[in-house]
């Protein structure tokens, strides 16, 4: 494999990691607020905070890792994205900042504050919407390069079916992934009333997820026919993803094997995400940056890959330790520790 392919694969893997862990977090915020409004908060909110408290900072680092790595491997992306994303990027930063810090602020106080719960829920949906803009504009057609540098065309962005379908897909996927995870976590905690509730959420959000995926595909064929054609060539990959989706929903519907169901969800997204990524190539940002044209120098790429491998030796054992303490430690999950 060439350096640039190693680089983009690693980054894509971490973006996928962020997609999963952040979706759990963002969706949980929405469900916590929703439960409060429908007076069911006593059922699930403890469960949610037990899982989230120790891990939110780690979730954030996944994101930081992705964008720092992207700039490192592909410095041209810093130029094009930096120039064009000032406003959506800044909005995303503000939302992330409000969400992260207020989560910590409230952690030792009460969870009763209505405004706080509202912010926590609303940011959970707005952040994915804002962040997904970066993927949207990478399809091309939304930015132009002029004498004065690169500019984002807001008119195009807000009137395009593709960008709205991506936003819609991002939001429903967040809710789907999150509810699927919470069902698993509730099951481990042996918390039947909570399980009952989040299982219903999971079933509810499954069909919008698949519908949104389809509409996004259709919109893509308008926005970037070349990319659409490459995706069609990889049709079997997306077929596998749909198969995992059906398996996950089936298991949840049966009320059995929640762990396997969540693994099926992770595989569903893994396969689809890599299918999307593979068909996106050779362009990183259509038509300005390509994989091989935008990559950094060889010496830097080698250095980054070496650091990455060394870093994994540090990271994987630590992550395993974290998960054993808070995800797989039955007593902790049940609230006995």
């Amino acid at each position: 494999m060439s350096y640039e392919l190693v680089g983009i694969s690693v980054l894509w893997l971490f973006l996928y990691g962020y997609l999963i862990v952040a979706s759990i977090d963002f969706g949980a915020g929405f469900f916590a607020y929703f439960a409060k409004v429908t007076k069911k908060d006593h059922i699930i909110n403890k469960l949610i905070s037990r899982y989230l408290s120790p891990v939110w900072e780690v979730t954030n680092v996944f994101f930081v890792f992705f964008f720092v790595g992207l700039i490192g491997f592909f410095p041209d992306m810093a130029y094009y994205f930096g120039q064009s994303l000032l406003i959506p990027g800044s909005i995303a930063i503000v939302l992330l900042a409000i969400r992260g810090s207020f989560y910590a602020f409230e952690n030792y106080g009460s969870k009763e504050n209505h405004l706080y719960m509202f912010l926590y829920g609303a940011t959970g949906l707005l952040i994915p919407a804002a962040l997904s803009t970066a993927l949207t504009i990478s399809e091309g057609g939304y930015i132009k390069e002029t004498e004065n540098g690169v500019q984002l065309m807001y008119g195009e962005l807000f009137s395009s079916p593709y960008s709205w379908s991506v936003v819609f897909l991002a939001i429903v996927s967040v809710l789907y992934i999150s509810s699927m995870f919470l069902a698993y976590y509730a099951k481990r905690a042996g918390d039947e009333p909570a399980l009952d509730l989040v299982r219903k959420y999971a079933l509810f959000w499954s069909s919008p997820t698949i519908i949104a995926s389809l509409t996004t595909f259709i919109a893509l064929s308008q926005q970037n026919p070349e990319h659409f054609q490459r995706a069609i060539d990889l049709w079997w990959v997306f077929g596998i993803s749909v198969a995992f989706f059906m398996a996950a929903v089936f298991l949840i519907y049966q009320g059995k094997y929640y762990g396997w169901a969540f693994i099926a969800v992770m595989l569903q997204f893994f396969v689809a995400f890599f299918g999307y990524g593979a068909s996106h190539l050779p362009y990183l940002l259509y038509p300005y940056v390509t994989l091989s044209g935008g990559v950094t120098s060889e010496s830097m790429a080698v250095a980054l890959i070496v650091v990455f491998i060394a870093g994994l030796f540090l990271l994987i054992p630590s992550l395993v330790m974290l998960m054993r303490m808070f995800l797989f430690d039955a007593d902790y999950v049940k609230g006995k520790k």
Binding site: V68, V307, G311, L314
Partner: peptide, 9 residues
């Protein structure tokens, strides 16, 4: 980029 990337670790 190297130290920035190492910082994330």
């Amino acid at each position: 980029a190297l130290p920035l990337f190492m910082e994330t670790f």
